[in-house]
Amino acid sequence: MVQSIFWYLKEFLRGPWIHAFLFAKTAPLVTPSYFREYPSLTEKECTHCFTCRMICPAPGAIEVLQEGGTWHPVIHRGHCLRCGLCVEACPEGVLASGRILQWQEEDRTSFAATFHIQVDHATCMRCGNCCVSCPVNKEQDPQMASGGHSANNEVIMKISSGRHTVIHEERCVGCRTCEGACPNSAIRVARVVEGLQGVAEG
C-alpha cells in the first residue's frame, strides 16, 4: 500500500502531467471544408432564372440582384439557414457550399417545380404592385408602370378591367417577389416541388 502511494506521487508530480492538468485546452477547432457554409459564388454566370429564390425556405434570405450589368445571387446572413437548397436547385451551378455540388453530380438529383398563383379577391385592392414587381412581367413588358396595366397579353398577370387577372401562370418561376410587394398579403404563390433522382436534368 505504501508502495502504491509512492507510485501515485511519482506519477502525478511529473511536470508534463501537472502542466496538462492545469492548462489543458481543446485544440483550435477548424470548420471542415465539407460543412455546408453560406453559399459562395462560383465563376459560372447567373442567368437570373430565380430558381434559388423559388426553393429558398427562409423569408428574405436570398436575392438576385443586377450589379454592373451582371446578375448574381446575394445571400443575407441572419436570414439564411445554410440548408443548401439554392445550391442544389441552381441549374447553372452559380452557388457552391460544402460538398453539395459533388453529391448532386454523383446522385444526379434535380428539382421539378410547378406553381399556382392564388389571389384573394376580397383583400386584393388592384394596386398592381405584384404585376409591376414581377421580374418575368418586367421582361415581357418593360413598359408596365404603377397600376399594373398592360396592353401586352404575354405577361403572367395584370390588372385588367379593374380586376387582377392571371394570364400565363405557366411562366411563373416561383420567386415570390409579388408576395413581398403585396400590401395586403392577398397574393400567394403555391409551389409544388418534386425532388428527382437519376433523371436527366431539364
Binding site: P57, A58, P59, G60, R77, G78, H79, C80, L81, R82, S185
Partner: peptide, 30 residues
C-alpha cells in the same frame, strides 16, 4: 435577428430583439 422561418404572415413574431434590448453581437445561423 430576423425571425428566420417564423417571420411569416399569420405568426406572432415581434422581432428583432434589438428593438427591445441593446444587442452587442449577432451570431447568424440556423
Amino acid at each position: 435577428v430576423s425571425g428566420c422561418v417564423y417571420n411569416r404572415r399569420e405568426t406572432y413574431i415581434l422581432g428583432p430583439v434589438a428593438k427591445y434590448i441593446p444587442i452587442a453581437a449577432e451570431v447568424p445561423g440556423c
